[in-house]
Design a protein around this nucleic acid. Structure first.
Lengths: 200, 200
DNA sequence: CATAAAAGATACAGATCTGTATACTAATCT
DNA sequence: AGATTAGTATACAGATCTGTATCTTTTATG
């Protein structure tokens, strides 16, 4: 029975410092290119402490990905729900939120896409984390599609999710933040097509 | 004036062996995770010979990416043009070709997307190669959009390119080769919308 | 205050990474 | 045939990588 206090709002614990530093470095430089020493330097925490909190680099990687998962999802969904009130406009707002994301100086693409690009072996924990993240995003979109009364919500959600992925990658590779605008334009057409009051 | 012969169709030169091995390994495991020693082992060429042909790993990386660029583009476009005759069906055929690509055992996502995920610094040669590849793909789509007489070919091409990117990433991360089918479904809607004889 | 846990500082072991050097062999061209 | 090139085999230098060990200092708690 020792440091059981969760330090809510207090200055971050060493563990949190490590995780946040890992998220930042992995996000910018990738996982393989980011050494433990680099994380140690940037976090201001010694290697000993790092290995007291995490069994290995792999464990830190997984923890960092999961942490970023929650962090990103919360932020993204909250922004969407703040920007618009009804389901249909929220679906479109997704791409507005994406655009501000793409325009950030610290935008290096989707961390999970990049992670999978470095780890092709299927069935690993890392792959599950990444897959689950994408699944969760699609489900978020799906709920909105159901709420707006789409004719085939599953189909529409899959299509919009695809557009979002495409926009992320295009913004990253081709350095065009306005890929979000293109996606939004296409999304509007698809949403219109799936609206019940459509004369198909 | 020595080995100026290009060896058309003959057994591959050491250089070609190295490049092809590099393409395969970089594609599967990523660039940072693939060491020179691994390439040497798999290619059956000694390290000395490798460094006789390439100044550094970076030069081999760039050469491999450029080689794959041409290789992929030729194969992809030829398949699309073989599968369908008129522009509109060719645009849809893109996603059929993509699906067979995604279904291959050796599918590890788009090499250029993965490469950028590992190299965030903008303005580097690697980034240019990747950007140019995507640009070329979009232009291929654009030509078809113009040929089919789309109302706004640039817009349609951008949208379809986005769908393709999204399908690639989704097939890779979520291991769903039928992401191509979803993209095709959405593409059909967008193409329909851009057809001149549409009652908008 | 005293004791124990957490963390800092630093060195190190062993593996791997890029790139080079040395010595020998096979192929090629004049 | 003779000379040059290309390639093999192998060792090695120096840096970096993950993970551990040692020793001291700070911090928290009873």
């Amino acid at each position: 029975m020792s440091s059981q206090m969760k330090q809510r709002g207090a200055r971050p614990s060493k563990r949190e410092q490590l995780i946040q530093t890992a998220v930042n470095l992995f996000g910018q430089y990738g996982i393989h290119a980011t050494g433990i020493d680099t994380i140690v330097e940037h976090s201001g925490v010694t290697k000993k402490t790092l290995y007291a909190h995490f069994r290995s680099k792999e464990e830190l990687v997984l923890t960092a990905l999961r942490h970023y998962d929650g962090q990103f999802r919360n932020s993204f969904m909250r922004q969407v729900e703040t920007k618009a009130r009804n389901p249909k406009t929220r679906l479109l707002a997704i791409f507005d939120v994406a655009e501000t994301w793409f325009s950030q100086q610290s935008f290096y693409g989707c961390m999970f896409i990049n992670a999978v690009g470095e780890h092709s072996t299927p069935g690993t924990s890392l792959r599950y984390v990444c897959r689950d993240f994408k699944r969760m995003m699609t489900e978020f979109i799906l709920k909105l599609c159901i709420q707006m009364g789409a004719r085939n919500p599953q189909h529409l959600a899959e299509e919009l999710a695809l557009l979002l992925e495409g926009a992320i990658v295009t913004a990253q590779v081709s350095q065009k933040p306005d890929a979000a605008k293109i996606a939004k334009r296409a999304a509007a057409v698809l949403i219109q097509k799936h609206s019940s009051h459509e004369a198909f």
